[in-house]
Amino acid sequence: MSHFAQKIAHNFADDLATVSVLWQRDLLRFLRQPSRLVGALMQPLVFWFVIGGGLASTFRFGAEPGVGYMQYFFPGIVVMMVLFASIFGTITVIEDRHAGFLQSVLVAPGSRTAVVIGKSLGVSSVGLLQATAFLLLAPVGGFGFAQIDWLVLASFLVVGAVGLSSFGFALAWLTDSSQAYHAVMSILLLPMWILSGAMFPPSDDHPVLQTLMHYNPMSYMVSGVRHALHASDINGASWTTLSGSLTIDFIWVFVFAAFSVAAATILIHRRR
């Protein structure tokens, strides 16, 4: 093997080690903290039953007859779990980077790109585990397991989770303070979720909100998940996607993920 090829192989092995250490660590940490486990599983239930149940009596869907609000809200909750896992999994980066484990990863031989990938995969896995646990309740929400298109569901959730966790990582690295991250969470991340079609569909009556919803990448994630759950509706009609095409919805989610990974990678290479 040439010297150059050897060097590449060494570097690749360093990066692979970094990715796998960070990935496993986030999963291990999640399973180690019982309070996080319980909170992560209880919170969506509370949201679904309390908010969903509360709004069920006031919301009426002219366009989608036969769909109750609890059923409408279900896919939004699945996406919310991935979003929340991304937020809680990346806000720790701020402290971890200056006074924690991440310091020792940054001075290890692996590249910083590997740090982004490893952290993002770890946080995504935690979010996906939680989402999967909640999906066990799909029949309660009115979605029989047999009617779900699992492949489409997994594609949207996995790519979306990588996107949201990298997005969270980029924001954590950029803000570099927990207070600032909290602010970003309240003015950007939570509104993104609320305006994703998770709680209410876009409506011609509110053109500004409708426009925001159409330019919100999370809307396409919710749309994809909703479509996958409704894949073969009992009534025979599947839920129409936001863009009108499942492929275009997926492209939106994919581009968002690619953008987020790129942003996080660029930010982590800045040494201030």
Binding site: R25, L28, R29, R32, Q33, G100, L102, Q103, V105, V107
Partner: peptide, 11 residues
């Protein structure tokens, strides 16, 4: 060796 240890408290 960091001043604030580069260790994970949960591991």
């Amino acid at each position: 060796v960091f001043q604030a240890a580069g260790l994970d408290p949960h591991l």
